[in-house]
């Protein structure tokens, strides 16, 4: 896979952060189509880019031959977004609390904490050897 592909409400990108702008642009278009306001679009975009960064780096180990797929939908007054990678599985429980005083000056490790703070629900489906899917929900 060398470039992003879009089919309906789904975008797939190669595992490179160069394509984050494509994800953001796709997502913003879909969310505006759902009537989501500017502030919520930003919160969702921050959250999705966090999970996509994790999928690229920790899931797919930046292997451009592996894809990250983002699917957007609206259901019962909420936006649901599922981000899937093709890696070996990522354990969110292994991340230390970034607001612990000992961790405040760390450069990394805040992504999932921020997503949990901004979104109404975050569900990890970890399939060892078959990738991780993360579904985030934001009520409108």
């Amino acid at each position: 896979m060398k470039k992003p592909t879009i089919v309906g409400n789904t975008i797939s990108i190669p595992s490179s952060q160069d394509f984050l702008v494509d994800v953001d642009s796709f997502l913003e278009g879909k969310l505006r189509g759902f009537g989501v306001d500017d502030s919520m679009v930003a919160d969702i975009a921050i959250s999705v880019t966090e999970i996509v960064n994790n999928a690229i780096v920790h899931g797919n180990k930046s292997d451009p031959g592996k894809a990250v797929t983002i699917e957007v939908s609206k259901d019962n007054g909420a936006v649901l977004i599922t981000i899937s990678d093709e890696g070996n599985g990522f354990d969110p429980g292994s991340v230390q609390s970034p607001i612990d005083e000992n961790n405040l000056m760390r450069e990394v490790g805040r992504g999932i904490f921020i997503v949990r703070s901004l979104m109404d629900d975050v569900v990890f489906e970890i399939r060892r050897g078959k990738g991780t899917s993360v579904t985030i929900t934001k009520k409108l």
Binding site: A42, A45, I46, T49, E50, N53, M105, R106, E107, V108, G109, R110, G111, I114
Partner: peptide, 16 residues
């Protein structure tokens, strides 16, 4: 407009 944890990490790196 906004930043995610990557931006925060860069600011922390610069500060440190």
């Amino acid at each position: 407009e906004w930043m995610n944890s990557t931006g925060l990490g860069i600011l922390i790196s610069g500060l440190t």
